[in-house]
């Protein structure tokens, strides 16, 4: 018994000593679950090519990642964070306050949000953003008044849509995908409505009144797991699902995209912005860590390489919609030279 106790305490003491003494040799990356698969790909390629210790990539969500990233500089903090939106002014301030002053911002490409149905559904779906808002918003205009959403059937939204119940599976509020969907589809759709246009409401009003998804049944929060939504859609051909484009791309044999404003999501339409629901993907890197954390520069080189970022690179194979050649070269210059981002205010 005493030997066990002794071992335990020795273990605990060496533990604390070891953690204080050992220098970190692996890069630490946190951030958005949408950027995660791309960073994952670069990390694996990097470790395979160079034999360096594999970077530790954690999916914490954009906001959570910013919090960890802006904690400060030093070995115990993350080097890079991924984000499915640009850094907010408040986050930039937090970073500045904690001494993280030199940050590079890298816009690596775009990701489309797709609305999809099962292949078993025969109807040729084509919705406008306004119709998506009318189907899924918590409050909509009814006969000139702003009221709780009364619509239950698709053909109440537009007459030639099928007479089936509205049922949409989508991400929960904690997800970056949900934030992006609300901003890109719901807000834009809300602004399209005649009621909002004629009423002379401004952006603040839209943000305040059009940000909520309905909670009376037709919109179901399906959890962070997009694969689950894919399975539900297979089981119910009348349901629609909302998720990142990469999940649609991987499951094109089972799912078909819903056209939005007449445009089908694919790499071309997302890149040229004709598909309206797409968002930029970023990562942020601490310049103070470059040259201090081993391999960080080499890792960024791999991330910025044409092999990874170009339109036929391995990130595009995973569903990232690549930047134009010109913008990519600009980005490669900026990041490899450690150019700091513009201050946010």
């Amino acid at each position: 018994m005493t030997t066990i106790k002794l071992t335990a305490s020795v273990l605990a003491i060496t533990a604390i000593a070891a953690s204080a003494a050992s220098a970190r040799d692996a890069i630490r990356i946190v951030g958005s679950s949408t950027v995660f698969p791309y960073t994952q790909a670069v990390a694996e390629q990097f470790a395979n090519n160079t034999g360096a210790p594999s970077p530790i990539v954690e999916s914490t969500g954009t906001g959570g990642g910013m919090k960890i990233f802006c904690e400060g500089i030093g070995e115990n903090t993350a080097d890079i964070t991924g984000a499915s939106r640009a850094m907010k002014a408040s986050e930039y301030e937090l970073c500045q306050k904690n001494g993280v002053t030199d940050i590079s911002e890298a816009l690596i490409g775009f990701d489309g949000l797709s609305v999809a149905v099962s292949r078993a559904n025969d109807f040729d779906w084509d919705l406008t953003l306004g119709e998506i808002y009318m189907a899924l918003g918590a409050q909509v205009p009814v006969d000139g008044e702003w009221k709780d959403n009364p619509y239950k059937m698709w053909n109440e939204i537009r007459e030639d849509l099928p007479a089936v119940e509205i049922l949409a599976y989508g991400p929960p509020p904690t997800s970056g995908t949900r934030d992006a969907f609300v901003e890109l589809a719901m807000h834009a759709g809300c602004e399209e409505l005649d009621f909002v246009k004629d009423g002379g409401f401004d952006g603040d009003w839209v943000e305040e009144n059009c940000s909520r998804m309905r909670t009376d049944g037709p919109f179901v929060e399906a959890g962070e797991n997009d694969n689950l939504i894919v399975q539900r859609l297979e089981a119910d051909p009348n349901a629609v699902g909302i998720f990142g484009y990469s999940f649609l791309y991987e499951n094109l044999d089972k799912l078909k995209p819903v056209k939005i404003e007449g445009v089908e999501p694919n790499a071309d339409t997302i890149a040229d912005k004709s598909y309206p629901v797409s968002r930029p993907l970023y990562f942020y890197v601490k310049n103070a860590h470059r040259g201090v954390i081993p391999n960080l520069d080499e890792f960024l080189e791999e991330y910025m390489s044409d092999d990874a970022l170009a339109a036929d690179g391995y990130l595009a194979e995973r569903g990232l919609v690549a930047l134009s050649d010109e913008r990519r070269e600009e980005l490669q210059d900026a990041i490899l030279n450690g150019q700091n981002m513009e201050p946010k205010s």
């Binding site: 533990a15 953690s19 995660f36 990390a43 694996e44 990539v57 999916s59």
Partner: peptide, 14 residues
């Protein structure tokens, strides 16, 4: 944070 993506097995408990 034990849900990180790491392509190598750990060498020790740290």
């Amino acid at each position: 944070g034990m849900n990180a993506f790491i392509t190598s097995a750990p060498d020790g408990p740290f």
